[in-house]
Design a protein around this nucleic acid. Sequence first.
DNA 1: TTGACTTGGTTCGTTATACGTACTTATGAT
DNA 2: ATCATAAGTACGTATAACGAACCAAGTCAA
Lengths: 258, 258
Amino acid sequence: MTKPEQDRNISSSFAKGLAVLAVFDAATPSMTLAEIARRTRQDRATARRGALTLVQAGYLRQQGRMLSLTPRVLALAGGFLQANQFGRRVQPILNQHARKIDAEVSLATLDQGRVLLLAQSTTEHGPITYGFTAGAHIPLVHTSLGRMLMACLAQEEAAALLESADIPQHTEQSRRDAAEILPQITKARSQGYCLTDSEFEPGIIGYAVPVSRPGQTPVVVGSSAPRGSDTGKNTEALLQALQICAADLRQTNVVEDL
Amino acid sequence: MTKPEQDRNISSSFAKGLAVLAVFDAATPSMTLAEIARRTRQDRATARRGALTLVQAGYLRQQGRMLSLTPRVLALAGGFLQANQFGRRVQPILNQHARKIDAEVSLATLDQGRVLLLAQSTTEHGPITYGFTAGAHIPLVHTSLGRMLMACLAQEEAAALLESADIPQHTEQSRRDAAEILPQITKARSQGYCLTDSEFEPGIIGYAVPVSRPGQTPVVVGSSAPRGSDTGKNTEALLQALQICAADLRQTNVVEDL
DNA sequence: TTGACTTGGTTCGTTATACGTACTTATGAT
DNA sequence: ATCATAAGTACGTATAACGAACCAAGTCAA
């Protein structure tokens, strides 16, 4: 037939099941079977089998007709975090610098065109907290982390990614034109850091610098602070602190291969 | 035939694939195909299909003949953490009390008979850090967290769990006899807290108190500190702080249903 | 060197199994 | 009541997962 040569090395049922697990994100923490089927574009019966299998495996729990994730999914992430020594090597560095600059410091990478938060300092001092956690997806085009990540890519890749991304309007200052944003990315790449001003949260300036070396999987660290009177002076200090943080992280070699 | 009546609602291929994903834990962060097959007790060809599917889905990466987890698994955990407001509600509470008592505070639950770390304060002050992260499995029988978790179960359940658990010898002080440990659990249940002394790390005292209400899924918070001259006085203060921490967590209602 | 062993990859016939349609039974809102 | 949506059940069919058998390449010991 005109069948697209189904790869015998790939288990399609497994792939479909994984898709079911993956639809549970921050936006939709608990869903009905019908909803899962719709979002995964799977047949209801198929989605149901996948979901019930996940329930039996302990990754989903069913209360009434709603399905939601169980803590067991954390164990999957735990494997990654432990393997890469996040607890022992990464987190201390983030915390140390966070305390120094008195603001939250975040480590992020790209995951299927979205910004994936890998780790985050969790000292209490920071004036702002968005409530993000490791594993959270954050906006791509209007955050310093996202733009710096795109700047880690080659120009064409960044342009393509930006093109395919949707551009929401978080604040009045959010730039909405890709033609206006791309130069910002180019600039970030050449100067080695990225600043955003009020494009995600009004009055908040975002700072980000790269951690990964050119060619590697993009990884960046960033922070944010409210715009104040001494912003100019602070910017200098913050960026410098982030650069040191990035250097410390590079030395651990844990971000070598993500 | 004598077939064990395979449930038509469960996708066995999917379940097998999940098993492949789950073998990647802290002990074995990267494995070969043959190793995966052995540990999952699957046919080599079957394990290979599962692993390749995971690679294609982006959860595993292949370098040479070694397979390891990608950061994408964090996104799965992120769904759970965001859904339960860990970043916004849980983490701040843990940090706050950690700072007060100047030690790491951990939140844990039971997952298939093992202790699963849900979250952890990450202030830098604490004198000791084991490098555990959210999603890590920690010892069950020789930690205060583990024993307090067992104490949250009914006596028979706890006994059964203890019976089935293996009892390693982390230190010279590690009690190795279940008949000696069970009373400790009973005691923890009746007095509402649990202490362990040097059974996991020499010279370290572990403290834990329950968070969940009786009947709910067991959840506990705990901390640890080196044994000092003023231990007795500290114990009082630490336990009290943990109790308050637990009460604060209860008020958030986020641990209601895990 | 040889030989025994492990690993990764491929092929392929068989059969188990996942699929999806169709139908029935809840649930809930208007 | 009706209409709409969700969940559960059943089953015939097509397919896709299975695992045995195979080859090739590497590893280690004798």
